[in-house]
């Protein structure tokens, strides 16, 4: 049995949406980082993520029968058509909020890509093999900031704990198995997100402990909906800014 081209395109689009939206979020830090060195570090990560999004969208567009391109997928879909996790669309907040969100996502992205390097779809395994080198660095970078600020001053510690507590209810969604994930997993094209949770939790707990932060309970209310196109109010505003130019000037060229 072979995966339907439509399914592969939908799966690639779903993966792309996460990294495009987070890349767009991070790019807002460009020129606003606390110091030049960290400004450029975060901007590099933003560019890596947007590069990964392009690779996924190209893969999705390649299998599309309705004339989609990487640009139409990124710029001409509305909020309800985006299938990113809610975590990545949340506002940047302060530097600590941004790095905590980044750490929680990077760690997930690392285990996801690790699984995708073993994908039975060569397009995906190739893409993942390239991306995981970038993401290994991202995960290290964001973990170090979480440790530095968590185990920093009283002020930085309390800000990081509160960032963690606010973001935590958005992490459960990372491990939700949609019907598409189940279909893709049946053909060894991609992992079941739920199977990534144990590694993620172990790594996240280890880093948070080094950061002297308290890991919130897994019980309690969790936010979800992004994978089904139900987003927070923040995504529409992000898209309005990101998509303005190609929508207002459809024939614009660099």
């Amino acid at each position: 049995m072979k995966l339907d081209t439509c399914d592969l395109a939908a799966y690639a689009t779903m993966r792309a949406d996460d990294v495009l939206i987070l890349g767009q979020r991070l790019s807002a830090w460009c020129g606003h980082g606390p110091v030049l060195e960290q400004d450029i570090a975060l901007t590099n990560i933003a560019l890596d993520l947007i590069g990964q999004a392009r690779a996924y969208y190209q893969l999705a567009a390649h299998g599309s029968s309705d004339g989609q391109t990487e640009d139409t997928l990124a710029y001409l879909r509305d909020a309800h058509e985006f299938k990113n996790h809610l975590l990545v669309e949340l506002p940047n907040g302060h530097w600590g909020d941004t790095l905590m969100r980044q750490f929680l996502f990077d760690t997930y992205n690392f285990y996801l890509l690790e699984a995708l390097t073993k994908s039975s779809a060569p397009e995906l395994s190739g893409l993942a093999a390239k991306a995981i080198k970038e993401v290994s660095y991202h995960a290290q970078y964001s973990a170090e900031w979480v440790i530095r600020l968590g185990d920093g001053t009283e002020e930085s510690h309390s800000r990081m704990q509160s960032a963690l507590d606010i973001l935590w209810p958005y992490t459960d969604e990372l491990f939700e198995d949609t019907s598409l994930d189940v279909a893709v997993h049946a053909l060894q094209v991609g992992p079941l997100p739920s199977a990534l949770r144990a590694d993620w939790l172990a790594k996240v707990s280890e880093v948070l402990q080094m950061a002297t932060l308290t890991v919130p309970s897994l019980d309690g209310y969790h936010q979800r909906g992004g994978l089904h196109g139900k987003h927070t109010e923040h995504l529409g505003i992000l898209l309005a800014e990101m998509q303005f130019l190609p929508r207002a000037y459809p024939t614009a060229q660099w």
Binding site: Q38, I40, A41, N44, Y141, E144
Partner: peptide, 13 residues
């Protein structure tokens, strides 16, 4: 350690 990481980001991109 941070200097090394920043050097990577600033000078080897």
């Amino acid at each position: 350690e941070t200097a090394l990481k920043s050097a990577r980001d600033v000078y080897t991109r």
